[in-house]
Amino acid sequence: MKRDVSARIVLNVTEAADLVFAIAVSSAYAPTSERFSATLDGTSIDYRELSDAHGTRLHRIEAQPGELVVEYAATIEGAAEPAPATDTDLLVYGRPSRYAESDALAPTAVAEFDGLTGSAELLAAVSSWVGTRLAYVSGSSLPTDGAVRTLLARQGVCRDYSHLSVALLRALGIPARLVAVYAPGLSPMDFHAVAEAWVDGAWRVVDATTLAPRQTLVRIATGRDAADTAFLNIISGRADLGDVTVSAVADSLPNDDITQLVSIT
């Protein structure tokens, strides 16, 4: 499968800022072409690339006041190997985290899903349960909302759906995490977030929004929740987001069945 992805982010930097972007595809891929650039008021500026333990590629930029434009594009042909997991990973992703409060949601998880025997059956049940209890409403949630508040509000966007899925799965003893992705087939197009659960010896995708086929997803960042996977972190200074444009296209869009186990490759 061939996938073309790109992103363009425009920021108005009003105070010298230290910025970290997570928009490049994971190091698990070997793009046939790739480009990253950063300009301030039309002039190229330097950046540093960093990587974390899961292959997330971070671009750190120190920018003076002005209009900062960051652009990325890549073409991927074929697939990456399925992501591995260490014993430490499975421990970390079994714990509650800032936006996935599995301890608080444990009674709900047990009441709704106790007795399900098959791992694929459980993932499909969680995906369906979250998808039918939340309404997808753009702009409905705050950046600080976690799974508990999402469930109470009964609405959210992709990161909220994923946080709730992650929290419920962890509460049931299944390691789960959040993944930021490019999602061919998504409409309207944007960065997308899905959950991954460790089932039958592999990370399996849970996307309760069902807005894009899981088979086409391209991994960007992986972590406990949105705190680890945001496309932009402002470490210091001030920058106002002006515009975000995302594109993700695949040469085929397969039909997706939530009862089937799918991994990001």
Rank of each mutant, 00 (worst) to 15 (best):
R3I: 05
A7R: 06
V13I: 11
T14I: 08
A16I: 06
F21L: 08
A24V: 08
S27D: 13
Y29T: 04
R35A: 15
S37C: 05
S44Y: 09
I45W: 04
Y47R: 04
S51A: 12
D52Y: 05
H54R: 15
H54D: 15
G55K: 07
T56G: 10
L58Y: 07
E62R: 11
E62A: 07
E62M: 04
A63I: 08
Q64L: 11
G66N: 01
E71K: 07
Y72K: 09
T75N: 07
P82V: 03
P82Y: 00
A83S: 00
P84T: 03
P84S: 09
P84C: 01
A85P: 06
D89I: 03
V92R: 14
P96Q: 10
P96S: 12
S97Y: 14
S97C: 15
R98C: 07
A100S: 15
D103Q: 10
D103W: 04
T108E: 11
A109C: 14
V110Q: 13
V110T: 15
E112Y: 08
L116Y: 14
A120F: 00
L122E: 05
A125V: 11
S127W: 00
S128W: 05
S128L: 07
S128R: 09
G131S: 05
L134V: 01
L134R: 00
L134A: 01
A135K: 04
V137K: 00
S138H: 06
S140F: 07
P143L: 10
A147H: 06
A153P: 08
A153I: 09
R154W: 08
Q155Y: 03
R159S: 06
R159E: 08
D160R: 08
L164R: 15
L164F: 15
V166Y: 12
A167I: 14
G173Y: 14
V181Q: 13
G185V: 12
G185W: 12
L186Y: 09
S187E: 15
A195M: 06
A197S: 12
W198K: 04
W203M: 08
D207C: 03
T209G: 02
T210G: 00
L211S: 10
A212Y: 00
P213E: 07
R214A: 11
R214S: 03
L217K: 00
I220D: 03
I220P: 02
T222K: 02
T222S: 12
G223E: 01
G223M: 03
D228N: 06
T229N: 02
A230L: 04
I234A: 09
I235P: 01
I235F: 00
G237N: 04
R238C: 04
D240C: 01
V244W: 07
T245I: 01
V246Q: 11
S247Q: 14
A248P: 08
V249I: 13
D251E: 13
S252T: 13
S252G: 05
D257F: 07
L261P: 02
V262D: 12
S263W: 04
I264L: 06
I264Y: 02
